[in-house]
């Protein structure tokens, strides 16, 4: 429903009054989505519709074109309704959509902040690249900034902007990289190999790590290497051509990490090779299950099947929203391979 910006609150109220209390409004978080891609509004509306099935939120979807000469501001209100788990209730979430063109895009913080649901955390999902000069006011109330570094052309420059924003925030801003979220299921599958205490003796025996990544996902593979290196306290020794990295463990063992581009899946294989043992996680093309095995080289025991997750933006966001927001590990992993990203 298109609305005048100044009448958004009134229209929202009307939206709920008109349905006669049959529907339940739910919100646990303010989720603002910002994109400068053409036609992003309908795409992001679909994503929000999926997200709200499991994560009740007030969504503020902004499609911006700062390069336009003429000012244009339009707004809509939408409700995403789903039948609740118990099956007897329509649970609805509000979405406010804004189309901003021209110099008025500078008013973004002003628009966003005036429509936040009070007392709920504020997550800002910034799609695409951060600008050179970001309005510090924007970061004033952000609790989490969500981005996807896989799409960045210059990781270091972008990261500096994020870190500047973090420093300018009035509160602690959590950095949530969807490129890191992509790795959750792989990290779980690898971590579980080493849950039994005796298996942790194998950390010292790891000599080779092989990671296969899909076209465009080298940064994802680097983050996975960075995670292993930072958590196992390996020091970066150097890199050679052909995506080969070398690390050294605390006890002095040399570890070779090789990254290979293969297929389309973001990460299709990660193998950790030790003395007489291989820990292997495979994500076969077109499968939503990881095939997980720990075996002597050459042996192929039946794999354990684990959820592989999805590269779909809505599902990545859902995974991120389920996360507990502890991003120390991400920062360590990212800093470990920062200059390689």
């Amino acid at each position: 429903m298109p609305v005048e910006i100044g009448r958004i609150d009134r229209e929202l109220k009307r939206l709920w009054v008109e349905n006669g209390g049959v529907k339940t409004r739910a919100s646990l978080v303010n989720l603002a989505v910002y994109s400068e891609a053409p036609d992003s509004l309908p795409i992001n509306t679909q994503i929000i519709s999926k997200i709200t099935e499991n994560h009740a939120c007030r969504a503020i979807v902004i499609g911006a074109n700062p390069g336009a000469k003429e000012n244009r501001v339009e707004a809509w209100v939408t409700a995403h309704c789903h039948v609740s788990q118990s099956g007897n209730k329509q649970v609805c979430c509000e979405q406010l959509s804004f189309l901003l063109e021209g110099p008025c895009t500078r008013l973004l913080p002003n628009i966003v902040f005036s429509h936040l649901d009070s007392d709920l955390p504020f997550y800002l999902w910034w799609q695409g690249e951060f600008h050179d000069s970001m309005d510090p006011q924007l970061w004033a109330w952000v609790d989490r900034v969500i981005y996807d570094s896989q799409r960045w052309s210059d990781f270091c420059a972008q990261m500096e902007r994020v870190e500047t924003a973090q420093a300018e925030g009035k509160q602690r801003i959590l950095l949530c990289d969807l490129n890191w979220t992509r790795l959750v299921q792989f990290r779980l599958a690898i971590a579980q190999f080493f849950d039994p205490a005796p298996a942790r003796a194998r950390f010292e025996e790891i000599k080779t790590v092989e990671i296969d990544f899909g076209a465009g996902y080298r940064s994802t593979a680097l983050l996975l290497s960075g995670w292993l290196a930072s958590q196992l306290k390996w020091k970066v020794e150097g890199r050679t051509r052909d995506n080969k990295l070398t690390f050294r463990s605390e006890s002095g063992t040399a570890i070779s990490v090789s990254l290979q581009e293969r297929g389309e899946t973001p990460i299709s294989r990660c193998t950790l090779k030790c003395n007489g043992m291989e820990f292997r996680v495979l994500n076969p093309e077109d499968s939503d299950l990881l095939h997980v095995t720990a075996a002597a080289p050459g042996q192929t025991p039946p794999p354990q099947l684990m959820p592989a997750g999805s590269n779909d933006p809505a599902q990545l966001m859902e995974e991120e929203l389920m996360g507990v927001g502890r991003h120390r590990v991400y920062l360590r992993a990212m800093n470990c391979v920062r200059d390689l990203l």
Binding site: A191, A197, Q231
Partner: peptide, 21 residues
């Protein structure tokens, strides 16, 4: 049983996988 520091578990929302049995 198995919660004594597996460094690869840090920051993961799910819990440690128990020992096989």
């Amino acid at each position: 049983d198995t919660q004594k520091a597996n460094p690869l578990r840090e920051g993961l929302a799910t819990r440690t996988v128990p020992q096989a049995c």
